[in-house]
Design a protein around this nucleic acid. Structure first.
Lengths: 248, 248
DNA sequence: CGAACATTTGACGCGACTCAATAAGCGTGG
DNA sequence: CCACGCTTATTGAGTCGCGTCAAATGTTCG
């Protein structure tokens, strides 16, 4: 069975274009370089393994259960990972921003589907060649282990949220998380930008769009946040927001 | 701040005894050897890094948020990992059986608390020495990366369960999981043994003990399972159980 | 045997879901 | 620029699954 990506690649290229390989490779290499995984002189070598792709918002990047042939790194835009039940219920397991890696949980087949939430640019590696490269560059594997451990820790946080938090706590926690991640990427953290729709938020928080919407309204009425517009939230009181999130 | 383990170590030794270091070391080495991480001749070397500990059911092995000074490997018994909210609500993030490793998600501080569900034996490593050892033995780090990736994948499955499944689907999924893991350890998979109490199951599935109990009763009345006794479940129909679990 | 604890069962309430209607955004074309 | 259709978000009314509280039953172990 062909990887979903290849269906995209050859199927509907209208909304996707490939940048020159050299440019792409460098941009990706920078992503990793920032984190100190590789020495400067190894970058061109490593970058040559990658190719650069674009996806339009809404496109599927890879499908759950398909062979995990690729590792992706997000260059720009937002990607959502999700799992689904046969009847269509969906659970988003995470949102990925620039610098994040897709496929840390996947070894043989994709643990989750990956979908472009906004228009995105990614760098793509053959998983097998990526692994071979790690054999020769232990620092890269060490870094990947750290990243995977951090994602596992985040997954545990999300399990606490999904298993035990109320709708209000979930939404408040989500806003805090977005603010923190924006800050980590040197982006403004206070008027929080929500790049995803209510449906995507609901799928991430284990709620329905109606409940998400109502909860935003409630938090706004309580003065905790201000709904500037559908995709912009200003934090009224950080203290109140943390309190609403369940005190963590 | 001292690690929780050390409080146990010197605080209430009544229920815990240490086996001789040599015996312990070998037993741990075997755990890893089984998985092919290290060559036979490196085992004594590696094993010397570890010490062997016992904990009685109910004891805390390490606390959430405490410095992640140790890596543990389960030799026998069952361990539960959990996170808690300030008001006491708990979410169990996983159960660990013989051969599993505790602390994959923890880098600086423990992501979860670890509690002995049954009497357990563990092998303990200093995290810093373990990491130094990985620097010299890339195979070990590669294996740890694979294990962490698998745990992340399992965490994603659990997020789907917690966010989207009904009580019946959660309980059925849990029973299937226990059966599969028992089989993986060469244990009988059909009369499923539940080593943990209803409270621990409820904390793992994001439910209450009452709902867990009622759901067991319902599944039994439907003929899907048979409740041999409180801690033993016989699967009546594997097909029906898979169906009840949501078809995955 | 009896106390302490774990589990099951029952009655009831509430928070989140479902279904439905309305409002707001947003591109497209006149 | 406004009208139009389409998608998305909000709001409302009613329902239901699971949580809460309480009591009964079973189990363990001194």
């Amino acid at each position: 069975m062909a990887c979903a990506l290849d269906q995209r690649r050859y199927g509907d290229s209208a909304k996707r274009a490939e940048a020159p390989a050299t440019l792409c490779a460098m941009c990706h290499a920078r992503q990793f370089a920032v984190c100190g995984a590789l020495a400067e002189d190894k970058l061109p070598d490593f970058a040559a393994l990658s190719s650069h792709l674009r996806f339009a918002a809404g496109q599927t990047i890879s499908e759950e259960g398909a062979p995990a042939d690729w590792v992706f790194s997000v260059v720009s835009g937002v990607i959502g990972l999700h799992k689904a039940l046969p009847d269509g219920r969906r659970q988003t397991t995470g949102f990925l921003f620039a610098g994040d890696v897709i496929g840390l949980a996947s070894r043989i087949v994709n643990a989750c589907a990956a979908e472009a939430i906004t228009d995105v640019q990614v760098c793509r590696f053959s998983r097998s060649r990526f692994e071979m490269y790690m054999d020769d560059n232990p620092e890269l594997r060490a870094r990947l282990l750290r990243m995977t451990a951090d994602e596992l820790s985040a997954a545990h946080d999300q399990m606490l949220l999904l298993g035990r938090k109320t709708a209000r706590e979930r939404v408040a926690s989500f806003l805090l998380q977005l603010a923190e991640r924006a800050a980590a990427r040197q982006m403004p953290a206070n008027p929080i930008v929500l790049p995803m729709r209510r449906m995507a938020i609901a799928d991430y928080l284990g709620l329905t769009i109606e409940t998400v919407s109502r909860t935003f309204t409630n938090l706004a009425r309580a003065g905790v946040i201000e709904l500037v517009d559908t995709s912009t939230v200003r934090i009224g009181s950080m203290f109140a927001l943390r309190h609403a999130a369940g005190g963590r």
